[in-house]
Design a protein around this nucleic acid. Structure first.
Length: 284
DNA sequence: ATGGCTGTTATCCG
DNA sequence: CCGGATAACAGCCA
């Protein structure tokens, strides 16, 4: 489930594994993966580059590249996992999994992008980062920053939180989780979230995201994709690691189960064609 | 087995 | 302009 925390954890792990390696060969097997750029231009731009760092912006993994002289400005390789994108790291000789969308031969290792539903994206065109909202975990993300993001919209606050141009990186799961912890109804009109409530939502959002990163960072990761205990993480989790992960979610996917605070049954409600989970008693 | 659901987002309508 | 619906796609589950 690639939302901000999952991409952050992935980026931190890949940073350690990929830094200093050279991109020797790029094989895009599913052209639609590369947008908005031709697969050819993407491959040509990437081949020969050396990976300097791996980071994150919103739900994008950002691979900073160097190593080729005379190519002008710094280049960034952007990866969006969509719903089901995964990055697998392994032997060059291993057989490729089904739904392999792209293969990257790096020095000493092979990186494979697998994506059954094909919502993932890759590009070297960083205009896709334009228009993204503030990073909720940056120090300059203050309660006023969130207040500004919620202002001037009659949309439900839950829907607003999913708008990447307002706050970057929040997805369907953490939007529900943050609103639950802030005791705020997902149906509340965004421009009617009041001062004290903004403060609660601000801290709840940061807590939820930070906790997820902390927990994700301590999990044993399975970069080869061999593990079967893989239902949650885009790049695969070592077996058995998924259990504690789900327990951490307090409302998401708990329809009909008792609220952990008041005991009332958790409800599911469709907003903007996505499921929202909430407690009808605790969240007003 | 059929249909409803799924972590995302660009684009199309009214 | 705004906001809701849809499409892109495959897999899983009841």
């Amino acid at each position: 489930m690639p939302e901000l925390p999952e991409v952050e954890v992935l980026a931190r792990h890949l940073h350690a594994h990929l830094c200093g390696r050279r991109v020797e060969e790029v094989d895009v097997r599913r052209g639609r993966l590369v947008r908005p750029q031709t697969p050819r231009a993407f491959a040509v731009g990437l081949e020969g580059a050396v990976i300097e760092s791996v980071g994150r912006r919103a739900k994008y993994m950002v691979v900073q590249l160097g190593g080729r002289r005379g190519t002008g400005a710094s280049r960034r390789w952007l990866v969006h996992l969509g719903m089901t994108g995964r990055l697998l790291l392994g032997e060059t000789s291993a057989p490729l999994p089904s739904h392999t969308a792209a293969v990257f031969k790096l020095t000493g290792v092979r990186l494979v992008f697998v994506d059954p539903r094909g919502f993932g994206r890759m590009t070297m065109d960083d205009t896709v980062l334009e228009g993204l909202g503030p990073e909720p975990l940056e120090p300059d993300f203050r309660p006023e920053t969130l207040a500004h993001a919620l202002r001037d919209s009659r949309q439900a606050v839950k829907v607003r939180l999913l708008d990447q141009s307002r706050v970057a990186g929040v997805g369907n799961i953490y939007a529900s989780e943050a609103l639950f912890r802030a005791r705020l109804s997902p149906k509340r009109r965004s421009d009617r979230v009041r001062g004290a409530e903004v403060e609660r939502l601000w801290s709840a959002l940061r807590e939820v995201l930070e906790e997820a990163i902390r927990l994700g960072s301590t999990l044993p990761l399975d970069f080869t994709g061999d593990g079967t205990g893989d239902g949650l993480f885009y790049h695969g989790l070592a077996e058995g690691a998924a259990a504690g992960y789900e327990e951490r979610l307090r409302v998401y996917d708990r329809e009909g189960e008792p609220c952990l605070v008041c005991g009332r049954a958790i409800r599911r409600w469709i907003q903007a064609a996505r499921s929202t989970y909430y407690c009808p008693v605790c969240q007003r």
